[in-house]
Amino acid sequence: MYDIKNKSNNSNNLNVNKPVPFIGKGFQPKTRSWMGYFVFFIIIFVLELGTSTGVISSLTLPKPSDVLETIIQLFQSGLLFKHLVPSILRLVIGALIGISLGISIGTLIGLFSYFRSGLVPVIAAIFPIPKIALLPLFVIWFGIGEGSKYALIALGSFTPTVVATYGAVDNVDRTLIRMGQSFGLSWISIVYKIVLPGAMPGILSGLRISLAISIILLVAAEMLGAEYGIGAYILEAGSLYDLERLFAGVTILSLLGITVSVFVTKLEQKILKWR
């Protein structure tokens, strides 16, 4: 028979000393900034090794060192800026139009019942359309030149900004707004001093998404009727099956994306330093 009495005596044995085991380990990811560089290095190193020994054929992937050389040549010949400057200009102008319209419309939707009821369904209808599908239409509306490219990027960055903005306005703490009203603040003051700053964190995280979409659309737009631009450069390299140049273009795009992301992070640190 199981001896309950004896068992309980055992568990009360005061001679056994054991430290309390630590069970709260993990689930706390920390930033290890060197790790990112390390992974990049490993990938490039493996590719370099594979392509130079012939394990990876030159038809599959170019040699990373050749790609680097292509980028350096591009820079030295001045062609880099000939392609990069129009691209950046398109990105900035298009995204600026889309984002500023998006923030304004999003704020209106967040503040007024009629705008909300009228526009939310429209936005919901536009949001899932792949904007690239509209490019031929924009070429007819705005011409094959810069106009259609601005329009495409603007529309692409507009929808995520609108959705992020009105969501952020909705989430502004109502007690802060009541506080403003109770102190007799004007409507304009409440919007500018309470609603918009309160919505800023949400608007900025929307900015990240809309800028990434803008870069994707930039390349798409430049593949149709552009002489210069990163997209045109990649398209040309692709149709000639020039893998070094193709990858040089992709690398530049990737760097552009990282730059934009760093820019948004800096913006967040500056604007949201109160968090």
Partner: peptide
């Protein structure tokens, strides 16, 4: 007097960015 009826709220209602 700039605001006759003035509230003090339970949850303070301070603007965190100011």
């Amino acid at each position: 007097c700039l605001n006759a009826m003035t509230y003090i709220f339970q949850d303070f209602a301070l603007l965190p960015w100011r």
